[in-house]
């Protein structure tokens, strides 16, 4: 059951990604990308990362995509249907990418035994939905506390920079 769901969401994710690259209209591209993000959230939950799945829906599909949509609306780009593909580059790199994708698929089927699920008991319990947040919060606030605080500073700098850059007169 869970394998079948994985394949469904994986194909949805790849289809959404292809729609992002091929879409003529920025809004259509963006909505395809939202589809990809939701499928990725479902795959995270299938992989046992419940907290990351929730974060994916809230931060990516919620906040970042709405930011993009606001910019498209503000700049009035929704009517832009002109093809903007670079012709020669498009042919060559499309061919190369398709080849790469089939190479990846072929290697994954022809390769030797795949990765096995880990046997960490804490991770197993979290994957079953027991204490999904505790299991991330513990290393985050113990081993990575400096990086966590630096992330706060990074977000502050990004906010100030975005306001300064988008302001009408500096």
């Amino acid at each position: 059951m869970s394998d079948l769901l994985w394949w469904v969401f994986a194909s949805l994710a790849v289809g959404g990604a292809a729609g992002t690259v091929l879409g003529r209209n920025p809004v259509a591209s963006l909505l395809s990308l939202v589809l990809t993000f939701f499928s990725l959230a479902a795959i995270y939950i299938l992989l046992g990362a419940h907290f990351i799945g929730a974060l994916q829906v809230m931060v990516y599909a919620g906040a970042i995509m709405v930011l993009f949509l606001f910019v498209i609306m503000l700049l009035n780009l929704g009517h832009d249907f002109r093809p903007d593909l670079r012709k020669g580059v498009w042919l060559v790199s499309g061919f190369v990418t398709t080849g790469l994708i089939f190479y990846f698929i072929w290697r994954s089927f022809a390769g030797e035994a795949g990765l096995a699920m880990g046997t960490d008991p804490v991770l197993e319990k979290a994957a079953e939905g027991g204490n999904a947040i505790t299991v991330i919060a513990e290393p985050l606030f113990r081993d990575f506390i400096v990086a966590f605080e630096l992330t706060g500073i990074l977000l502050l700098v990004a906010v100030i920079g975005a306001v300064l850059l988008a302001k009408r007169r500096v």
């Binding site: 990575f144 990074l154 700098v157 990004a158």
Partner: peptide
């Protein structure tokens, strides 16, 4: 999974500054 948390924070900052 902790690293995914940091990647998301950096992606949010990058999107804000890039769109500006």
């Amino acid at each position: 999974q902790v690293f995914v948390f940091f990647v998301m924070a950096v992606a949010a900052a990058e999107a804000a500054v890039g769109l500006a």
